[in-house]
């Protein structure tokens, strides 16, 4: 499956968290087949920026527009989001978890998604008994079945071992090849990702008082 042409247009946006300004007059355009890598130290505001891009929060100023196949669409059509929290119900089985999200997006391939993140064989296990890394992979499968062209991922590799990282990298690569796009925040250096990568680096303003 490949995705229709789409754009995420962030134009002159200011984001704050609580009383703290994070970015001001920020511009970014993301479209298909792109990988945007957001870097920066802890607390610089990567998560807030991603939540804004995902449409979960509103910017204080500026505009965010999203188009799919030339028509303006809402965030829920365009973006899938993987946050710090995995949206997994521990008392349900792995299969029940993934099947729910697959059903919501009308995606038929819950099993295929589990296979992609190498959780095949654990379908009937309670999700609460998965390790942190396995939960993260299940969340990734949930992102996959959402069939959204733009993935916004906040530290997708947190709590994941080397083999798990390769699974993530492969999925991201495949998604970008399908003309999807990924915007992710991570401390780690890019690994085997061969696609076109853009880096956005957020750094705390060095000179106190000098910034506008």
């Amino acid at each position: 499956m490949t995705f229709a042409a789409f754009t995420l247009d962030i134009c002159g946006v200011s984001v704050s968290r609580g009383a703290r300004a994070i970015v001001e007059r920020f511009d970014l355009t993301v479209s298909g087949s792109e990988l945007v890598w957001l870097r920066g130290t802890n607390g610089v505001g990567k998560t807030s920026l991603l939540r804004m891009a995902a449409g979960l929060s509103r910017p204080d100023a500026g505009s965010v527009t999203r188009t799919l196949g030339g028509a303006a669409v809402s965030a829920s059509v365009l973006t899938g989001f993987q946050g710090h929290r995995d949206a997994i119900k521990p008392s349900l089985t792995v299969h029940e978890n993934i099947a729910f999200w697959a059903g919501l997006s009308g995606s038929p391939d819950a099993e295929a998604a589990l296979a992609k993140v190498e959780l095949t064989g654990r379908e009937d296990q309670k999700a609460g008994t998965l390790s942190a890394g396995q939960s993260r992979r299940l969340a990734l499968a949930q992102l996959w079945v959402s069939q959204k062209p733009l993935w916004i991922m906040d530290e997708p590799a947190a709590a994941i071992d080397v083999a798990g990282q390769k699974i993530i990298d492969d999925l991201i690569t495949q998604h970008v090849r399908n003309r999807g796009a990924v915007m992710l925040a991570s401390h780690a250096a890019p690994r085997g990702l061969t696609e076109k990568v853009r880096f956005i680096t957020l750094s705390a303003s060095s000179v106190a008082g000098a910034a506008v």
């Binding site: 965030a75 899938g80 989001f81 919501l104």
Partner: peptide, 14 residues
């Protein structure tokens, strides 16, 4: 809200 389900529902078709 605590386990992130709400965010995902918000970004779903519902």
């Amino acid at each position: 809200a605590r386990d992130g389900t709400l965010e995902q529902l918000y970004l779903s078709k519902l």
